[in-house]
């Protein structure tokens, strides 16, 4: 009986330590654009903001650059990959790290942070196709 309690105790302690370590390394705080820019370097955060109109640059290799604003401050975001629902002027959440004056996004969530909803598609897609 005593041995068993010790075993369960050890399991729970090991679990607790693993949980705490995993939690610490995978925690991704929500911060504002102003906070990120004032800090200069921040790793592994989520930033909420609006995509600034006329700030988008599409580079080769599917690289996208745009500015994200929280109404007070703007920051440059760089993202590799396709964003099929990308649009300027809509709210976005970027997940990643800020360094060298640029936010390197691992993920860009558009319009609504839940993936259960699809952000508005660029109208051009359907127009181009219907013209053939």
């Amino acid at each position: 009986m005593k041995k068993l309690s010790i075993l369960v105790g050890v399991v729970v302690i090991v679990f607790g330590i693993a949980l705490a370590m995993s939690f610490k390394s995978e925690l991704c705080p929500y911060v504002t654009v102003s906070y990120v820019v004032s800090k200069g370097e921040v790793r592994n955060v989520q930033v909420n903001g609006t995509i600034v109109p006329n700030s988008t640059k599409i580079l080769p290799n599917n690289t996208l650059m745009f500015n994200l604003s929280d109404g007070k401050t703007e920051m440059r975001v760089i993202y590799h990959g396709i964003l099929s629902h990308y649009q300027e002027g809509i709210p976005a959440v970027v997940v990643g790290s800020y360094y060298d004056g640029v936010f390197h996004a691992k993920e860009v969530l558009l319009k609504c942070p839940s993936k259960y909803k699809v952000a508005e598609e660029n109208y051009s897609t359907s127009k181009v196709l219907s013209k053939g």
Binding site: F15, A18, L19, S22, F23, S25, E26, L27, C28, P29, Y30, Q46
Partner: peptide, 12 residues
């Protein structure tokens, strides 16, 4: 004021 990534769940 934060959330955890998928890695957190997978590690455990």
């Amino acid at each position: 004021h934060a959330s955890v990534t998928r890695g957190f769940y997978r590690h455990i």
